[in-house]
């Protein structure tokens, strides 16, 4: 009996000494992490639509903002969501594919200029694309004069444009991961008569699925976040916008900000990405680290 008690008190002591303070820190960081998310949710259900005067539990709550969000014909949220999904997933696929191809070559082949290529691609991506916005606008505009599908207001040029940023940090991460796959495997396969393409598709790709997941996820998020070049290429026509560009229209203007529908839309946009993240988080830790260990 007393032994039981002794164990219990030992446990409690251990809990207080080793666990409690972790929970206290945890609570602080959790509230920091979730702070904007909570207010976003609160504002989404607050019908007054004024973030600055917001109470945590809104005084006047209701679904007004969601109704407003879905019934606005000039700001069609569902269309934006569809556009965002199409662009983000196709561009992320393109980026991952291009990055994987390049990373394979940079990891497995020894050729002149390999190190230079590695350095160059990472440096080039540091040139601020912001300033190139006008140039890109003009390029896409004149492409569109000949091929309307590649012109302003279409998704294809934007997807290709994101493909142009594929060679960069992601390539490094992929290369880092490929480097960890022992080259003995390739060599054995080569002896068995496999071509470099077969090694790539049959051996490397299946092994690298976790890191592909991470890279694609990061790409999707990066693309969803891009709004400047996106708004320049797609224009601000209601039906062409993405969620990131479109939602900003609600709080555009210095004095007439409409936080309600913005928050509602932001909440709706956040939920699927968040879910994806939670499901894939076990890949994230391993993928991010394995990709970087031998950068």
């Amino acid at each position: 009996m007393s032994q039981q008690k002794f164990i219990d008190s030992k446990r409690v002591k251990f809990w207080i000494k080793k666990i409690l303070w972790r929970h206290i820190i945890g609570a602080f960081v959790v509230s920091f992490s979730l702070f904007p998310l909570v207010w976003m949710a609160s504002a989404a259900f607050d019908v007054t639509g004024q973030l600055s005067t917001q109470q945590l539990i809104p005084l006047h709550h209701g679904l007004d903002n969601f109704v407003q969000l879905f019934s606005n014909k000039e700001k069609p949220f569902l269309t934006w969501a569809r556009n965002s999904l199409i662009i983000a997933f196709s561009a992320a696929a393109l980026q991952t594919a291009i990055g994987a191809l390049a990373a394979y070559s940079l990891s497995r082949h020894r050729f002149k200029g390999r190190k230079l290529t590695l350095t160059t691609i990472i440096i080039v991506q540091m040139f601020p694309q912001l300033l190139a916005a006008t140039t890109l606008f003009l390029i896409v505009n004149s492409l569109g004069n000949t091929f309307p599908l590649l012109g302003l207001g279409h998704q294809l040029p934007l997807i290709l444009l994101f493909g142009g940023t594929a060679l960069g940090v992601n390539t490094w991460m992929l290369k880092g991961f490929f480097d960890t796959i022992p080259s003995e495997i390739d060599e054995a396969a080569t002896i068995d008569g496999a071509s470099h393409l077969m090694i790539f598709t049959k051996i490397i790709i299946p092994l690298a699925v976790p890191v592909f997941v991470v890279i694609s996820l990061l790409s999707v998020i990066g693309i969803l976040n891009e709004y400047l070049i996106t708004s320049v290429i797609l224009g601000l026509d209601g039906k062409n916008m993405t969620v990131a560009v479109g939602l900003q229209q609600f709080i555009y203007g210095q004095y007439g900000k409409n936080w309600g529908p913005f928050a509602a839309g932001a909440l709706l946009a956040t939920v699927p990405v968040l879910t994806l993240f939670i499901f894939l988080q076990k890949y994230l830790v391993s993928g991010l680290v394995s990709g970087s260990t031998k950068g």
Partner: peptide
Amino acid sequence: RTIFIMPMAIPSVLSVLVWAGL
């Protein structure tokens, strides 16, 4: 861990604007 990485998952265009409002 799940909660801590949430800021990564919220599209930052939106979260930064919410911060600005806050």
